[in-house]
Amino acid sequence: MTRGQKIEERFFKVLMFLSTFFILAILAIIIYSIFEKGIRSISWEMLTEIPSGGYYYGKGGGILNAILGSLALASGATVIAFFVGLPVALYINVFLIRHKKIVGMVRFLLDLVWGIPSIVYGAFGFTLMIFLGLQTSLLAGTITVALFILPIMIRSIDEIVRTAPIGLQEASYSLGSNKSETAFRILTRQSVSGIITAILLSFGRAIGDAASVLFTAGYTDHLPNGLLEPVATLPLSIFFQLASPVPEVQNRAYASALVLTLIILLVSLFSRGLGKRYHKTKINF
């Protein structure tokens, strides 16, 4: 090895170390600045009250409307996406397992849909809403977000279900069960931990997205009280409060961002913990 080659390798090694370090440092800086700014302005009042009269000029109140609204919307969307997504993931792994080409095409289509930006879902949800004669509402927002997280849900469940060995299905058939029983009773049980991870992943995506609810969910200072009423969401409450010229309101945006980040960190922590816990029902081969 010549001297030049040695220097080249050394140089790139340092560069590679620096980029890895840079990514970790950026993550630390982001988390630190969100926490540092947020903790200063967060209070019990913010978490437990809805905005009062002069809230957007710096008077009292909180963001309970947005917290509850976001939770309701994200849970609803996750439930819908789960009930549409689980059967699809099972179908392509049980009924279509011999048709590799069709399965490949479905997966490809899902990846395409996954790549579509959320603002496009927002715009589509808006046209759908007008078409169905709905107003901006919890229902319209939930449906839009459900469409948006559907590919994420299906592909994550699919990734886990496809790792189940074919022998498991064969054993189930040999005991006399039919395909749908094999799908819903055997494969689902085998993949419980992965399915929980998929649900939590989709939930995290649903609660953090603003562009898709901007058109469809609207915004309100009241607590969510019905499917056909507009609903406040956390990302939008951050966005609107940050746009205010009043410093107190901007500080509350930082606090709201802290709340949202904490919810998402908790969800991802849970998904790691729960994933490990439900290994009991899994048969190891």
Partner: peptide, 11 residues
Amino acid sequence: LAGIPSVVYGL
């Protein structure tokens, strides 16, 4: 990093 919502990145 992937989980942080885009509004928080904007902020």
